[in-house]
Design a binder for these strands. Structure first.
Lengths: 146, 146
DNA sequence: AATGTAATTGCCAACCATTTGCAGAAGGAT
DNA sequence: ATCCTTCTGCAAATGGTTGGCAATTACATT
């Protein structure tokens, strides 16, 4: 399992005393289907296709709410926009092509080792890890096979 | 040596056909002395102490220019502001306390290993690495010694 | 099913960091 | 010293995000 189902997510909402509105259900669906790489405006655009009356404020308000509840996370892929993704049980990191903007997710056991090492060395307890590796993908001339 | 001296930086400017202005010299000095964790507005404030006539536009324009030329880099410590630092020969990463906002820089050989591993696995050539580890520092209750 | 009520929405204006247009100032080659 | 072009300062524009408020809606209670 990589992330909560929309249904489970709604249960969390309820547990926090928040209401389950049509808009929230819709937004969760959109964020889920966006697979992690939609910004607020794109989420708004897609949500409108289902419900043309939804407002941009509602999108922002709910992205912030869901973020506070820890149900989605905000990703900084570039300096321009924040992207949103359902929060995974298993964290992942990003490999970003600076030419075509392709984003590839990765995970590696080295990350855990790094956390342990730095955590001990600097006396921190680490809760979240953000890693972005920026470069050129194979198609954009970055690989050694090119 | 960790980063270019201001003088060397100015040489790069000249080499790119850009002019060496008083404002640019001043901004480089401020960014250098800020040691990597000033946002645009703070840079503006400090620059004004030296030259009260400098404008915020000039600050932004030059931060962007210096960034394009690769002389400084933009760091996303939080969602609010971008911070700027002289670009180091040796990259470093950030350990951030979510409570007191303290930022500790770190480096580890594991990062190089991670780059090699992922680079090979995913066929990317990696140019830049951003790592932020967010958690609680010892003082804020995060350490195992508490 | 109808009611009460507090959370939520949509609309619109405000906000604030950043960018842009333009006229005047200044770097730097000659 | 002159000329040409880049750069600056100012002020207005931009664009993503937030906030106020009246109308709407979720949902617990009856």
């Amino acid at each position: 399992m990589t992330s909560l189902s929309d249904e489970q997510t709604l249960v969390v909402l309820r547990a926090q005393g928040r209401r389950v509105t049509l808009q929230r259900k819709l937004l969760l669906e959109v964020v889920r289907q966006g697979e992690g790489h939609l910004d607020a405006d794109e989420i708004y655009r897609r949500a409108r296709e289902q419900d043309p009356r939804i407002s941009l404020s509602t999108v922002y308000r709910n992205l912030n709410l869901l973020k506070e509840l820890g149900l989605i996370s905000e990703v900084h892929l570039d300096q321009e926009h924040h992207h949103y993704e359902l929060r995974d049980a298993k964290e992942h990191y990003h490999l970003i092509c600076r030419d075509c903007d392709r984003v590839v997710e990765f995970h590696s056991p080295l990350v855990g080792k790094l956390m342990d090492q730095i955590s001990g060395e600097k006396d921190f307890s680490i809760e979240r890890v953000h890693i972005d590796l920026v470069g050129l993908c194979g198609d954009c001339g970055g690989s050694k096979s090119g």
